[in-house]
């Protein structure tokens, strides 16, 4: 392992802003997409349920 301490690890040899800025942005995007997908599925399921109720009411 090339890091003497946690401080050194987070400092990234002076490039902390660039390195963590890249990895954090990626992590945020991926997390946000997963949350959006969950929300979209929940909404789609509600829509199908609403259609079903409407169908049953008219049948």
């Amino acid at each position: 392992m090339s890091w003497a301490s946690a401080t050194e690890f987070f400092a990234m040899g002076g490039y902390a802003f660039y390195v963590w800025g890249s990895f954090l942005a990626t992590a945020i995007c991926v997390t946000a997409e997963v949350l959006f997908l969950r929300g979209r599925r929940a909404q789609a399921l509600r829509r199908v349920h609403a259609e079903k109720l409407r169908h049953e009411a008219t049948a």
Binding site: A44, L45, K52
Partner: peptide, 28 residues
């Protein structure tokens, strides 16, 4: 991600169809 999204799209577009309305997960 694509599989999760395509599943949501199928439910959205075919919400009026029998097969989506018969799914277990849309029961409640």
């Amino acid at each position: 991600a694509a599989l999760a999204r395509v599943r949501a799209i199928m439910l959205e577009r075919e919400a009026h169809m029998q097969w989506t309305q018969e799914l277990q997960e849309t029961a409640s």
